[in-house]
């Protein structure tokens, strides 16, 4: 059957299509990812094995020295402080963000939702540095907050240059992310499930705890993780608001790369460690995040 044969020749073979299709579709994003994510990460990974490297030095990987230095008490203290800031920020974002997202997603009238959401996301359009400076002028001893407190006869608060200021600054910076993701999750919440719970005898509080929270658990986990990761990587707020004892892993990494105490090897080792930690937690979230997604 010569005619059928020539027809086959014109058509791209199915196996080729099967390979080409994903290749063509993924190529642009793939190039982007490889150039701007994979390659730099590999460079950091390589640098992490070079002790005391500074800009311009030859890269000669030689052992795990940089990683061992992570376990020095001082470095562990810095990492512990980072975790404390990040966990604290996540908890505050949750406490402040959940009611807002709940109200926006479940209670607020539909036509107001977009406007209110916009208002909430607006701070994201300003520079993070500018926001930190704004907090300085609010929190400083004679700042806006204390003027307000004084005008109603309350004692002044000394928050700036201490941990509370860092938590305030980071919570403010990251709250929009928390609200946005939780809102997306809560907005999809099936109201009929809330009615079903009430129908079965659950008070509003019981409904919230036994139905709403489990329903938005994936969103809760995702938003908390996002806030946590961002808080872990924030070095502007700790530096500007945190005072003399606010060295965090992110600040240390920054100093090791672009600061006054360059050591790209140590900075890379700490970066690698953070990347591994963050990747692991994301992987865990994806694997165990959503029980409902399980199918037959």
């Amino acid at each position: 059957m010569p005619s059928a044969k020539s027809k086959d020749k014109d058509r791209t073979p199915a196996w080729l299509v099967r390979w080409l299709e994903p290749l063509v579709l993924l190529f642009p994003a793939g190039v982007w990812l490889v150039l701007l994510l994979v390659l730099p990460t590999l460079i950091i990974f390589e640098l992490s094995f070079v002790p005391g490297i500074r800009p311009g030095d030859l890269v000669i990987p030689s052992g795990l020295g940089n990683y061992l230095r992570i376990f020095e008490p001082l470095t562990l203290l810095v990492i512990g402080r980072s975790l404390l800031f990040a966990i604290g920020t996540t908890v505050f974002c949750l406490l402040l963000g959940f009611p807002v997202a709940y109200w926006l997603g479940v209670i607020a009238p539909k036509r107001w939702q977009n406007l209110l959401l916009l208002a909430f996301v607006l701070p994201l359009w300003t520079s993070s540095l500018l926001r930190s400076y704004a907090w300085i002028s609010i929190l400083r001893p004679t700042g806006v907050l204390n003027s307000l407190l004084a005008s109603v006869g309350l004692p002044s608060l000394d928050l700036l240059n201490q941990m509370p200021a860092v938590l305030i600054g980071m919570t403010y910076s990251l709250l929009p992310y928390m609200v946005l993701i939780l809102y997306a999750s809560l907005e999809k919440l099936d109201r009929r499930l809330l009615e079903a719970a009430a129908d079965l005898g659950a008070t509003p509080a019981q409904t919230f705890w036994w139905v709403t929270v489990p329903q938005v658990l994936p969103g809760l986990a995702a938003s908390s993780l996002l806030v946590f990761i961002n808080a872990l990587g924030d070095f502007v707020n700790p530096e500007l608001l945190g005072g003399p004892s606010s060295m965090t892993a992110a600040r240390l990494i920054y100093n090791k790369f672009l600061g006054a105490t360059p050591d790209w090897g140590m900075g890379s080792a700490m970066s690698t460690m953070l990347i591994v930690m963050v990747t692991l937690s994301i992987a865990l979230l994806i694997k165990y995040g959503d029980r409902r997604a399980t199918d037959l």
Partner: peptide, 16 residues
């Protein structure tokens, strides 16, 4: 770091 890595002629990624 990328620009350095790409332009390096040796096998080391990080040589800038």
């Amino acid at each position: 770091m990328l620009s350095g890595g790409l332009s390096s002629c040796g096998w080391r990624l990080g040589n800038v």
